[in-house]
Design a protein around this nucleic acid. Structure first.
Lengths: 325, 325
DNA sequence: ATGAAAGCGCTAACAT
DNA sequence: ATGTTAGCGCTTTCAT
């Protein structure tokens, strides 16, 4: 092995690989030369068996979330996670958590297969993994819904702020009868975005237009838009809790012979890439899911290292002006 | 450990865990009882160290592809892979292959970290991993572009067929001046879809309308559509090589004051979920990327097991009728 | 600062 | 069919 070529002991080689502070520079050089020469790659299994560390982290995607995987949001979070991790020497284990057999995932996590886990989901209930937080480091994507989960680590986009500036933008542009297509009220993103909407309205002293909730899907958004129109109330603007629903709303509006933004202005949320291709291009709120994913990964790595990290990290949201308002 | 509680040797416990054929049913029962009682979970690192198998497979996503990760196609392939793997006891290691340091990925793959790899990419050049196919089992998503890569394993959607039936559908609906927004001609998907388009036209004895290529992005599609219109040629239908470009075309068509499908019919490819929300809803070709991902995973698992598997697997494509034609 | 030696928790011949 | 005996390739005390 490398030790012989370098003329040192296996222990020293091990030290060099793990860059232990106490090794002579010369020895380091010799060992590295031998490593390069032999094209040596340490065996991961052996390392983790001996060190009791796996250098792997799990990214759990609940099955129900996976179905919505077509939602670019998740794809981007995953991308952010993977990207950040590629700069560390952690390996990413992606797993779809079966909801019919949740124990399989628990066993996996508790079986010492990974050093920590990332849980990404729109579903609040999925903080069922919170309890595992005591057994191994876990970072969640999205804030916990349950109060009892306040001791979990998470990173979330500033949904309240995003919805608020979007609504303010609508108001600044002269809209007064503002309705909302809210997301599910059992999901933090749904709740927080509706809250930001209301805060902006309150602050401006405006009465709230009708609110319909839907499931974050295009079809749901179209349905909600139809219900909104069916109320008979005057509406000159709509804040949709995500772009997918906004896209659905475009269709429903077109069916009703209403023009965007002439008759009703529309703002989405998420900045999915297809928004720019709608006509008119959709004004929306960007929450940078890639950054969110990176932040999650960074936080977990620190947590595993035992560094002190804050429970919550909030990533910024910003308005993307296009022409649907 | 479990052995003591069950009153057998460690070897027998190991046999039970790996369900070796030669163990008495009674012993199996006793051991399993002990396992359950002790809540025992075998240590993965130890197993793989001893067995020289990792029970892990890598899913490589080239960095350039990752940037297009917003394309729902990839997300769905990943979902299919993950879903299938969750029914096996393989672990999925997702990794973004840095293009600036391709050796990092090679080292990872050759370092015995995984039993096999899946490579997903739109980019033909990325069959650079083909050479590694001799070192460990690899299954590609998308057919190889290079002739020399004919000895690699892959699964691909039937792009030629999909484009062909789409074009035939246009013809059946009375369209005669059919143009195309083709994908990059250095990617199999781009090439094959254009080929299907031409085959259908030839078979019908129709002359081909203008063809513009773009990069599979919405913006590129919009640009291509503008160029198509700028040719001044009469066009009553357009086949876009993917939905993202079709979405871009909607915008360009609207700018030009042309109505879909009245003035020009439009068909996309991929069946991205937002297509149904465009107005009018986009007629498209479904290629079931989830099935493609599952197929890739299934194939790799068999390859690892040493089972005979065909080099190529082609998954079906089918027309999704909506109202853009 | 480096080496020697003992294991990490399992699987895989080889016996029996 | 089951037990015995060696390792798998590293890390990690403990010496020195």
């Amino acid at each position: 092995m490398v030790a012989e070529v370098a003329g040192v002991s296996r222990a020293t080689v091990s030290r060099v690989i793990n860059d232990s502070p106490k090794v002579t520079p010369e020895v380091i050089a010799v060992v590295n030369a031998a490593i390069a020469e032999l094209n040596y790659v340490p065996n991961r299994a052996a390392r983790s068996l001996a060190s009791r560390k796996t250098q792997a982290i799990a990214l759990i995607v609940p099955e129900s979330t996976a179905k919505v995987f077509a939602d670019p949001f998740f794809a981007s979070v995953v991308q952010g996670v993977a990207t950040h991790l590629s700069s560390t020497d952690y390996t990413l284990n992606l797993l779809i958590a079966s909801e019919t057999d949740p124990d399989k995932t628990r066993r996996y996590l508790l079986g010492g297969n990974v050093d920590g886990a990332l849980v990404v989901s729109h579903h609040s209930g999925d903080h069922s993994y919170t309890q595992l937080g005591n057994a191994l480091p876990i970072v969640f994507g999205g804030r916990p819904l349950q109060a009892e989960a306040t001791d979990s680590y998470y990173v979330d986009a500033d949904n309240v702020h995003g919805a608020r500036i979007a609504t303010e933008y609508l108001i600044e542009h002269g809209r007064r009868r503002i309705a909302a297509i809210a997301g599910p009220q059992d999901m933090p993103a749904g709740i927080d975005r509706l809250r930001g909407f209301r805060e902006a309205l309150d602050a401006a002293g405006l009465t709230e237009g009708p609110v319909e909730t839907a499931d974050f899907s295009p079809a749901g958004g179209a349905e909600a838009m139809r219900r909104l129109l069916a109320t008979g109330e005057l509406i000159d603007a709509v804040l949709a809790a995500n772009d997918q629903m906004a896209a659905g709303a475009y269709g429903a509006l077109a069916e009703a012979g209403l023009r965007v933004p002439h008759d009703v202005a529309l703002i989405g949320f998420d900045n999915d890439n297809f928004g720019a291709t709608l006509s008119p291009p959709l004004t929306t709120v960007d929450q940078s899911p890639i950054a969110l994913g990176e932040e999650m990964a960074r936080k977990l790595v620190r947590l595993i290292a035992g560094d002190p990290v804050p429970r919550a990290t909030i990533t910024p949201t910003r308005l993307v002006e296009r022409t649907s308002v």
